Amino acid sequence: MTELSCSKSPSMVLSRAMTFFLTMLAMIAFAGNSLLCRLALKQTAIDPASFTSLRILSGALALRLIMGLRAGSPSSGNWPSALALFAYAAGFSYAYVSLPTATGALLLFGAVQATMIGYGVCRGERLGMLQSAGLLCAFGGLAILLLPGLSAPPLAGSALMVVAGVAWGVYSLRGKGAEDPAGVTAGNFLRAVPMAAALSAIGIPWASMDSSGFWYAVVSGALASGCGYVLWYMALGGLKATSAAIVQLSVPVIAAVGGIVLLGEAITVRLMIASTAILGGIALVIVERQGGKGGGTDQ
């Protein structure tokens, strides 16, 4: 999953073509986390704790290697943010034991954005009429998605994914405005490794593994997470804040398409209605919020 804050790396100017290319790769990588996790937990023998640990460890190693190639850019980070990162990764893995790819990605994205928007409201940010309507629309879509019925997602998995989304929202808020977001993320991944190791130790009685599950977890951590974050931070150098926020709406859509193509998952009418309401409502809030600040400012 994706860091959803929009802090830009300084002094990075990109062409439109390069910005588009990097953004596209980053969004595919972020959606890839959902696909890889669901694929591993559905079709291989790996357990959620092992997937979480391997994802965090491989992400930490990949980011450390990337940071090592950058002269004068040591890793930083802090323990509270690392805890939020670990809570996201663990909740994400356990949720995808039962959730379809598209539903999980939509719940995660909605929870992240709700957390960040809610934080702004609690800090005194005023919502205009259109923003309020967008927020109500998004929460209405979430309610539609979770209403009891034959096509309703499992409650336990949904709750875990919402917790994961809140944790990632907290992580994004804590990292907002960081001067070196890639370095901070590298440091936080490194700090999350012992937490993931503790989770795996607790889960030893239920641990299982095969080669396919191992490699899905490694690719999720090293490429979809580690390299995906670096690509995103590079792309932010050529994106306005509004564009950076809006483009992330594509992640649940890409995940849904991937779930259909790679996992044979069905898209229900309920999911389509909920997706339209949630993503449309969030888009309205983002556009109105950034429009009031000026499209070229950072979030």
Rank of each mutant, 00 (worst) to 15 (best):
W215E: 05
L239Q: 10
V285G: 08
G292D: 08
L83G: 07
S158V: 03
I204G: 01
G237T: 14
F20D: 09
A196E: 10
R289C: 00
A198H: 07
Q290K: 13
S225Y: 12
W206M: 11
L231F: 12
M234W: 12
F214L: 15
G68A: 03
G128D: 01
I46E: 05
V285Q: 04
S7H: 06
G259P: 04
S211G: 02
A266N: 10
S93K: 08
I273Q: 13
S7N: 02
G177F: 01
G259S: 04
G169K: 00
R38M: 02
A89I: 07
M27D: 02
N78T: 05
T2Q: 13
S34H: 13
G292Y: 06
Q43P: 00
P148D: 03
A222M: 10
I204N: 02
I267D: 08
I144P: 00
I267C: 10
L85S: 05
S132F: 00
L135P: 00
G140A: 06
A178S: 14
F21C: 15
G165W: 03
Y119A: 14
E179P: 13
V184K: 11
A31D: 05
L83C: 10
T44V: 11
S58Y: 02
L155A: 15
A224Y: 01
L155W: 09
A40K: 06
I246S: 08
G177S: 02
I260G: 04
T23A: 13
L146T: 06
R38N: 09
G59I: 02
G259T: 02
S93A: 15
F30I: 08
G296D: 15
L145W: 00
Y233S: 00
A245N: 13
A84M: 12
G258D: 03
G175R: 03
W79L: 14
G228C: 06
L130A: 13
V251G: 05
F30N: 06
L4E: 12
I144S: 06
L69C: 14
A152W: 02
R55Y: 08
I278G: 04
R270I: 00
A186M: 06
I204W: 13
F51H: 11
A105I: 09
I246R: 07
L239F: 07
C227R: 02
V193Y: 05
F51W: 13
A198K: 11
L14I: 07
P100N: 07
V163S: 09
C137D: 00
L160T: 02
A105K: 11
S53T: 14
A84G: 07
T52L: 12
R289H: 12
L135F: 08
E125V: 09
L107R: 01
V121K: 01
T44S: 14
I254H: 01
S250P: 03
L271V: 02
P194Q: 10
L35H: 05
L39I: 11
A111Q: 03
N78I: 03
L199Q: 11
V251C: 04
C122A: 14
A277N: 05
I267N: 05
L127N: 03
G226L: 07
L25M: 14
T103Q: 15
